[in-house]
């Protein structure tokens, strides 16, 4: 019979329509600004800098080695070293900017960072009216505490903390071994 297929299709549509009132498999829409989806732990959006302790600037783990700046595919990171009064570079960034209008959240900076100092954030409501004032994030906007990192990526943060702790212990053991075995040469 001509039209049978169309009627079959309409039955399917009607089933879906009725289901959208009671069947959880059909009720998938979220009313976005009012309702928000819980993000999965791995979810990533623009990077941020982790700091330990209480001072967001002094506690930064970043040593300004500029590896992320070099490896960043769209080249959205800009770093300038802090220097002491004699011009010797210190292990601290003076400027650390990320242009998030260029950043594509690819996570390569996180992967190449040897000091676990840059990590991916999950904040996504970042629209702004002014690109150069709001979308270029400076050191103070990027610095977020280790507690925040633990909140958004708990499993990953625990693993990172364990690695850092092991490194610190190893470092201390080496230091104490070196100081006990060989006395300082010149005093």
């Amino acid at each position: 019979m001509f039209g049978k297929g169309i009627i079959k299709g309409f039955i399917e549509t009607a089933r879906n329509f009725a289901g959208s009132y009671h069947d959880p498999a059909r009720m998938v829409t979220l009313q976005y600004p009012e309702e928000k989806r819980a993000l999965p732990e791995n979810s990533r959006n623009f990077p941020f800098l982790v700091f330990d302790g209480n001072d967001p600037i002094k506690g930064l783990r970043c040593v300004s080695c500029k590896i992320c700046e070099k490896e960043c595919p769209p080249q959205c990171i800009y770093i300038v070293n802090e220097r002491d009064e004699r011009g010797k570079p210190l292990k601290h960034p003076k400027i650390f900017d990320i242009d998030i209008s260029v950043c594509m959240s690819c996570q390569i900076c996180v992967e190449v960072c040897p000091f676990d100092s840059i990590k991916m954030d999950q904040a996504y409501e970042l629209s702004a009216t002014e690109r150069f004032k709001k979308l270029i994030l400076h050191k103070q906007d990027l610095a977020k505490s280790n507690d925040y990192y633990h909140r958004i990526h708990p499993t990953e943060a625990d693993a990172v903390d364990a690695i850092l702790e092991a490194e610190r212990k190893q470092h201390e053991a080496k230091k104490s071994a070196a100081s006990s075995e060989t006395p300082p040469a010149k005093q």
Partner: peptide
Amino acid sequence: EFPGFLDEFEALLAENEIL
């Protein structure tokens, strides 16, 4: 669950005269 969707899609389309 996915084959259920495929069956649904097929019912919607496969015999549809307009299609």
